[in-house]
Design a protein around this nucleic acid. Structure first.
Length: 472
RNA sequence: GGCCCCAUCGUCUAGUGGCCUAGGAUACUGGCCUCUCACGCCAGAGACCCGGGUUCGAGUCCCGGUGGGGCCGCCA
């Protein structure tokens, strides 16, 4: 068998979103699985809407996901002569013809047909006119009017389309640029694409493209139409459903491997397996296991997967990754090799679901001054606890080794002396040290914070209690 | 409106005629662990869209209905 070749052909009219990313992933996996080639092509013939910034952001998103392309990127606007020569060929062979129908008229007819409940189709007004090229004229494909074309879809099986449903669609616009249908076919043909894996929304376009391949005297590639990704409410994925761009997930602190794992399981499965390394995906990916029904996007599951990968990730690498998120919060993060920083990362690792959450949870380690959550302070920083805190400060000052085990036995002893349960001592201290009622383990954070800082924050808490008492 | 696709817990899915008393994941609920919150562990609740067939036997095959999605552009 000759080498497998797949492609990902976004149009640079927007950022890479979930659906596009999954299509890219499936194409990439299929190519890798078969040791074939994955190419990137920008379909930018719509000059009005295509933008350079989207080319860049799509490439950036693909690279973030580590879906590297082996060939390209190609740009359709740089291949205009190629389309022109294929168009010329079709025209000369009588397989395409020029049409001078004004677009406004066609639009009117279309609306009318829709209103009357008929299928809007080009009526073939110019089919027999024998027109040559000229200003304002488009080139149309002379579509067969009888018979059927069967799409042998690798996921859905054979799907038949009656040629009566098709019309003489446009190949070339008056300015000579190709339309999508034509450019795709010429590209897939000339680039030697063997497998077209794309969204379900293209299934209805496929017979037109197969007919074009036939007109061009070339065998069409294999087609595989994957179900679309819908929003949580079952309607088409849109901006309403949260962050649209893949890059936005990166900026929220998602890990690329979590994103990939989530995406690969949307519409594809391998028995009961949920977690896949990149190698496993490549090894196991297979079109026959792609489902036929559309999938809804579930942000919760993505979050759970991200939490899993954070727990799985090497602490030193996490430290590196979380630094920019700390910077965004106005903190100058310590060096990624700093052992205390590493311990701090370790302490929030099982608790954070995104890097952003992780940075937020770590904030108290680095702030010069803790600010208390109002409810937390009111409940735990009370005059009743002040004597125990004062005694705690004394003993901490005298503690020979300021590490977890020693701290814990000190706390347990002190709690007993004051006839307190450990938690009744621990919570006020937690608030004093972090400002919150929720944090990593108390002795763990004390160890990380160090004696100086712990004492400073405890004294400040005592002052706070005093001041509050005075103010009534 | 025409044509096309699809249909298992809320969600992602396993399931290819008997291993299904329908499995896993996530979310949810309860418990254990415990200095809080997580993590971890244990338990619970939760689905075969409806109606006909075929068959000894149907989630699985066929037909119809219903529901959802897509396409019908000089957008891609």
């Amino acid at each position: 068998m000759s080498k497998i070749k797949t492609r990902f052909p976004p149009s640079p009219t927007g950022h890479l979103h979930l659906g596009g990313a999954r299509t890219a992933l499936f194409n990439w996996l299929f190519a890798r699985h078969h040791e074939g080639i994955f190419l990137l092509r920008f379909e930018d013939t719509d000059r009005e809407r295509s933008r350079k910034e989207f080319v860049d952001s799509i490439k950036e998103a693909l690279e973030w996901l580590e879906l590297f392309w082996d060939e390209g990127p190609y740009f359709q606007t740089e291949r205009l002569e190629i389309y022109a020569s294929y168009a010329q060929k079709l025209f000369e062979e009588g397989k395409a013809y020029y049409c001078e129908c004004p677009p406004e008229l066609l639009e009117k007819k279309r609306k009318q047909a829709l209103a009357e409940g008929r299928k809007p189709k080009y009526d073939g007004t110019c089919r027999q006119k024998g027109l040559g090229p000229g200003p304002g004229r488009v080139l149309r494909f002379k579509c067969p009017q009888v018979g059927t074309t069967v799409v042998e879809d690798l996921i859905r099986g054979p799907v038949a389309f009656d040629h009566q449903e098709l019309d003489d669609f446009v190949l070339l616009r008056p300015d000579g640029t190709p339309t999508y249908q034509f450019a795709v076919v010429v590209d897939d043909l000339t680039m030697g694409i063997t497998h077209v894996i794309r969204g379900d929304d293209h299934l209805s376009n496929t017979p037109k493209q197969i007919l074009l391949f036939e007109a061009l005297g070339a065998p069409p590639p294999h087609y595989a139409h994957v179900p679309m990704i819908l929003g949580p409410d079952g309607t088409r994925l849109s901006k309403r459903h949260g962050a649209l761009s893949i890059l936005a997930y990166r900026d929220e602190g998602y890990l690329p491997q979590a994103m990939r794992n989530y995406l690969v399981r949307l519409g594809w499965s391998y028995g009961d397996q949920e977690i896949f390394s990149l190698e496993e995906m490549i090894e196991k990916f297979d079109l026959s296991r792609v489902s036929k029904s559309p999938a809804r996007f579930d942000p919760d599951k993505l979050l759970a997967l991200n939490a899993h990968y954070i727990r799985q990730e090497d602490t030193a690498r996490l430290a590196e990754m979380v630094r920019p998120f700390l910077e965004k919060l106005g903190i100058t993060p310590p060096d990624a090799q700093d052992p205390r920083f590493l311990k701090a990362v370790e302490s929030v690792k099982p608790r954070a679901r995104t890097l952003k959450e992780m940075a937020e949870m770590m904030l108290f380690y680095f702030v010069p001054e803790v600010t208390y959550e109002e409810k937390a302070a009111r409940k735990f920083l009370t005059p009743q606890i002040a004597p125990a805190l004062a005694e705690l400060i004394k003993r901490l000052e005298a503690l020979p080794s300021f590490e977890e085990k020693a701290l814990e036995s000190l706390f347990r002893g002190l709690a007993e002396e004051f006839q307190l349960k450990l938690k009744h001592l621990a919570q006020p201290v937690r608030v004093a040290l972090t400002g919150r009622t929720v944090s990593p383990g108390l002795f763990e954070i004390m160890d990380i914070l160090g004696r100086e800082t712990v004492l400073k924050r405890l004294r400040k808490a005592l002052e706070f209690i005093e001041k509050e008492a005075q103010n009534g």
